[in-house]
Each structure stands twice: as structure tokens, then as C-alpha cells.
Design a protein around this nucleic acid. Sequence first.
DNA 1: CAGTAAGCGAGACGGTACGTCAGGTCTTGGG
DNA 2: CCCAAGACCTGACGTACCGTCTCGCTTACTG
Lengths: 209, 209, 209, 209
Amino acid sequence: MNDQPIPARPGRKRSEESRLAILTAAFQLVEEVGYAGLTIEGIAARSGAGKQTIYRWWPSKADVLLDALAAKANLHIPIPDEGSYAADLRTFLTASFKLGRDRRVMGVLRALMAHAQIDEEFGERFRNSFLQRRRDALAIIVDRAQERGDLPAVPSPGTIADIVFGTLWYRVLATRQPPDDRLADELVTILGGPQPGTAPPTSTQRKHR
Amino acid sequence: MNDQPIPARPGRKRSEESRLAILTAAFQLVEEVGYAGLTIEGIAARSGAGKQTIYRWWPSKADVLLDALAAKANLHIPIPDEGSYAADLRTFLTASFKLGRDRRVMGVLRALMAHAQIDEEFGERFRNSFLQRRRDALAIIVDRAQERGDLPAVPSPGTIADIVFGTLWYRVLATRQPPDDRLADELVTILGGPQPGTAPPTSTQRKHR
Amino acid sequence: MNDQPIPARPGRKRSEESRLAILTAAFQLVEEVGYAGLTIEGIAARSGAGKQTIYRWWPSKADVLLDALAAKANLHIPIPDEGSYAADLRTFLTASFKLGRDRRVMGVLRALMAHAQIDEEFGERFRNSFLQRRRDALAIIVDRAQERGDLPAVPSPGTIADIVFGTLWYRVLATRQPPDDRLADELVTILGGPQPGTAPPTSTQRKHR
Amino acid sequence: MNDQPIPARPGRKRSEESRLAILTAAFQLVEEVGYAGLTIEGIAARSGAGKQTIYRWWPSKADVLLDALAAKANLHIPIPDEGSYAADLRTFLTASFKLGRDRRVMGVLRALMAHAQIDEEFGERFRNSFLQRRRDALAIIVDRAQERGDLPAVPSPGTIADIVFGTLWYRVLATRQPPDDRLADELVTILGGPQPGTAPPTSTQRKHR
DNA sequence: CAGTAAGCGAGACGGTACGTCAGGTCTTGGG
DNA sequence: CCCAAGACCTGACGTACCGTCTCGCTTACTG
């Protein structure tokens, strides 16, 4: 038997009620007024909390939003195991892209990615607590394929993640075109290696922009 | 004879001296204090211009920076024509990634991409005056390959751009790992179609993160 | 002929309108909510000015109030010249005490004297711009008496001021009993030296507290 | 026999240790950081007490300081009885002025007098528990003189106190010149009535400010 | 000798105001 | 009409303390 790991700190406990009210307010407000219009004061006012309570627990409004996202949105993407790399990848991408089409969630994520560029310390936190977790999920699929001998030689596992998530984020951040399932298919095709019985579509002239 | 297209407006001409001083100050300051620390007042003070002069000609500090980037950094990437799609793509990517390793330039571009997420109107301008031009350059290469019959069926031209620029931006924005030539090679491999005499590297176990 | 003493500074001029609105608001508010309830934010809100405008021109709310007092209240006390020290002193004291019974003015002055105890730098300003001017006025009367040979040997001129203003301020600050004309008379009696034909009142038992 | 006036309440007794630690901390802190910088939180931190403990027993920081003064400084002034009004007054004034030159004590008293102007309720307490006691002491001397027939007709007993304490406080609050014994002498001279064998000093020109 | 009623240090809470920063606008005098 | 300077109103920042409210504990009287 070992001692209690929590040394029973003195003083009033953190209010779960306030915590939730703040996250809810942040999530509502960012939708109503946009990230540029989101302020700590606004969150405090809407949630009925004092500003200090927010500053006590979160270093910036982006951190509040990061927590709010985790608490309020279902970001879970299951990690499939369907026997083949191509199938797993397609399932993973389809689910990811579907989430990528959720305007509310992606609005917040765009803002967080933006803030991560401007605030170095938040960038670190955002990478660790969000971006890396997505890569970890994909890595499980890739590892499994590798063990199976199912994985093409090129690209390397890290690059797979760069391509997959890069393409997704680029659509969201740069072209603002929602990532659709056709894009997922194309990615599976070029990343999945030679597919048995996957007849490539005829290369008709297509216009791009 | 018709009137002058420029109606020869009365009053003092715009000062080229001020314009350049402002762009120079903006470019210096963003390096010194970061985008978060960059302010219109700071640019005015450093450049010796009045705030009004900046507001008269640019709608936001990001627009100043966008102009400053064009004026101060050589962003030119030549469009190669080396006879084969794979070769052209490799050359284009190598040059693009090289620019992507320039810390100063990418620092500014990260900031602009961030601002584009937060300010919708600037986002439009940024897409049109920067992002789309890169896509247009790549499109020329792809068009040429298509005419040559050199282009793989998958992915579609638009998706090629999404993958290429997506991967590049993702490295810059998300993983903060500078895009290297190995990554360019991998992209060429999966996008270039079956290469004559390009023996794929042996698929040894590689660790990813 | 000499040059203009004002070097014609560039930039927008200070707004007289704002200045007056701020002083008026401060004077109204201190009456409504008391000095403890007076805030810079409140003055800004009431006057329609920005906080920065107040901070630009006054170092503290007490300084605003000091200016407001000068602008809004008639603090003038004429310096009499009636031929005798005792008569001049009586006139001066009567006028001073009358002002000392103005609740609005004394409310502000009590607050300023209080603030002067707490903020050393304001204390300096308050002494120079208010307290010393009162002493200067009295000094003129005393000087005149001295030239006339009309002045008692004791107390010394400086002490006269200490006693006169001390007694007045003490009533205002400590006992909160408004200074009345009887008190002025008593002060004239003990400070004015032997008065021709001023029969002292019989020393009947008087209760004090 | 009647009940105990204190009903012997249950529960923990007030901690004398805390009480003293708080008063000591308050007295130290006001010297170190000045009254403006003195805070309840600071006193709590320095004394090792909880804020609640302070709020339980004192209504404001000024009240803490008032108690601290009584506990930490010797404010006692003996009431002399030397046979004549003039002598008693001189002794009383000399002792009072000596205390008035103690920088530490007067620093605190200035702050308390200031606070009394701003906080009406504390003002009441300060008057009753401090100012009035000083007046009471002087009143004993005056009463004795009156019984002896030693008291001049003017000024009235209450006015004597106003003049004496007014002059003292004015020096402390307004001119910031420590009250010296010469001032005491002058007050005795004008308040003590015709003194046997007190030749007035020759009225040479004296400068005042 | 258990029960219970304070008092205690600690510290989180909702507030209010602080003094500062920068935004974007307006005014001035000069070119 | 442009320009540098700089005052203006606005709004949010992040901080400091306020006075109040739990917490878990200690202490001491009471039934």
C-alpha cells in the first residue's frame, strides 16, 4: 500500500460549474462573433465567471477554445482494422474528411491553427494535444500494414501523415473547399500501392484551378 | 482623342519614399518582434510615416506585410520545361521547398496564412494574390504533361496541387519541420506515375512520429 | 521683436471641449458618489471622453478634481485693506470661514487633503497650487500690518498662518463642525494684539467637549 | 449574582497569536510600502494569517492600523499639574509636539486621518477612539485652570483645543514641517494670557513663507 | 467523551477598477 | 490632395485587490 498521491491541498476546490460554463460560453461565442471577435471579457461575461478565473486556468483564449473543443465536440475517429491497408486508410480518411466538413468544428480548428502560428507556446500545446494525436492514430494503421507487409515502399510512414493531413488542412485553410470523398479516394489510390482490381478511371481532360 | 484614362487628379502625389519606408519597416519589425508584436503604430514610428498614411493605402497590417514580402523577398520560382512530367515536377518541388526553408520568408507566410483564417477579407486577397499564383504555376507544368500524355490518371490536376502545396504548408504550419528534398522525391514518386528505371528503395523498417 | 514663444507644434490641438466635460463630470460625480466612489472610468463615461484622454493630461483623479475645483468653484477670497491688522484679519477669516462652510467645496477639499497624505507627488502639487496660495494671501495682510507697526510680537508670521489655517482645517477634517464666525472672532482676539475698546466677555463657565 | 457578561461561547477561541502577527505585519508593511501600498492581502501574507481572519475582526485596513498603532507605539502623553495653566499647557504641548515629530507614528496617523476623510464610518471610529481622547486630556488641564481662575476669557475651552490640535495637525498634514518647541512656546504665549514676567521678544522683521 | 460550534490558513470565486496598448478616425499646419 | 504629428474615442488587455465563499483542520466548551 502506498500513500495517497494527492497531498490533499488546502483551500477551496476548483469549481467544475465555472469550468463548464466557461467552455460552453467560449464555444457559443466563437460561433456567434468569430474568433477575431472572441474576447476573454466576452467569455467571462457570458459565462458569469470573473476574468481572473479564466486567466487562472488558461493562458490564452485559444487554450480555452482547445479545451472547449474537446469537451463540446465529438472529435473521435475510430481506428479501423479491416484486413488491408487500403481499406483501413480509406475508412480513416473518409471519417476524417467527414469531420473536416463540420463547419463549426473546422471554424474552431482553423482559428486554433492560426493562433498556433502567432503564439509559439500555444503552438507547442496545440501540436502536442491535437495534431500529434491524429498522427498517432494514423500511425497505428500504418504500423499494422507494415507488419502485414502491406505497405508500399514509398512514401515513408512520416510522409504519409504529412501528405494525408497536409492535404486535408490545405483544403480547410487555403482553398476553403470542403474535403470530399473523391479526394479521399484519390489519396488512397496514390498511397495505397497497386490495388488488385482497381481499374483506374480514364484520363479524360479535366480542368483545374 | 479621348480623355486621359488617369484624370490627373489634383493634389500631392503619393510619396514613393513613404511607401518604401513603410514596407521596409514592416519587414524589419516582423522579424524583430514577431507578427503578434507587429503594430501599425510601430510601423509608422519606425518608418517615420504617419498612421493615416498607412491606413490610406493598406487595409490591415497583413496587407502591408503581403506587399512587403513581394517587394523585399525574391519569391520567384521558375517554371521548368525539361521534357518529362516527373523531371518538371521534381524541379518545381525542389525550388519550392528550398524557398520553404527560408526562415524569414516562411515566418511571414505563416503569419499571413494565420491572418487569412481570422480576417475573411484578407483571406480572399491572400488566396488571390499569393496562393492561386503558386497553383497557376504548377498548373502550367501539369497542363504540359497532360498534352504530352505524360500525366497519370490519378490524381486529378486540382488534387495534385492540393497534395503538393498541402504537404508543404503542413510541414511549415503544423510539424515545423523544414521541407527537405527527400520529401520532394517521395512526392514525385507517388505523383509522377510509373518511372522508367526508378528502382524503389528497399522497404526497411522505418520509424515515424 | 522676438519670435513666437510657441514653436507651432504639429498635430491636433488639445480639445477644450473634452477638458471641460471631464472637469464638469468629475465635479458632479464626486458629489453624487463621494470621493471613494469616484473613478477615472466613471469620469470618462460621464464626460464622454476616453480614459486615455484623462490619463494624458492628469496624473490622478485627485489632480482632475483639483482642476475641477479651480474651474467650477469660486474660491476667491479678497485681500482686504481696511487700515488695521485686526480689521483685515477679521475680514479675511470671515470670508475664509464662509467658504469653509460650503459643503460641496469642503467635501472636495477634504478629499484632496486626504489624497495628498497618501500620494506624495500629488501632495506636493496640492501644497503648491492650493495651500501655499492661501498662505500667500494672508502673508500680504501680515506684511502690511508689519509695515504699519501694527503686528503683535508673537506669534511670528509663519505661525499666524499655521494657527489660522490649522484651526480651520482641523474643524473641517477632525471635528466636522463648520467653522463659524465666533471662532473667527476668537482667533482675531488672540492674534490681533491689544484691541482698543474691545472689552473681553466675562469669563463665565463654559462647557466644552 | 448575574450571568457572565460573556456567555462563554463554544468553539475555538480567538487566536492571540494571529492577532498580534497581523498587527505587527500591518505596522511593518505600512512603513515599507506606504499606506497606499498596504493591502489586506499583503497583511495576510506577511502575517501568515488567512484573509478571512482579518475580515472577521477588523472592518478595514485602517482599523487594523489603528489597533496596530495602539499596540505598537507608545502614544501616552502625561497630563501635567504644575500649578499654573501656562506651565501645564507648555508641558502638554511640548510632549504632544515631540510625539508629532516621530516620523513612524505620524506617518500612520496621517494615513488614518486621510482614510477618515474618505470612509465616513471609520472617521467616526477614529474621532472617538483617538482624536477625542486627546481633546479630553487637554480638557482636564483647561478645567483645572478654570477652577483656579487661571484661564483667559478668550478663547473658549473648545476653541483652545481646536487651535492647539489644529495647528499641530496642520503642520503634519499640510506644511510637512515637524512641529518644534518654538511653535509650542508661541501657542502658550497667545493662549496663556498675560504672563507675569514674560517679556515679549522685540518685534524685529521676520520673513515668513 | 462524543458532539458541535467556532476559529484558523489556504485559496478559488465573482467583481470592479486599474493603467496600458493599439485600433481606427479626425484635426492641424505645411508642401 | 498628400504628408507627419498627434489628440481623440473605443475596447480589450492582463493585473491587483476587494470581500465572500468553501475546504479540511484544530480547538474548546457542552451535554
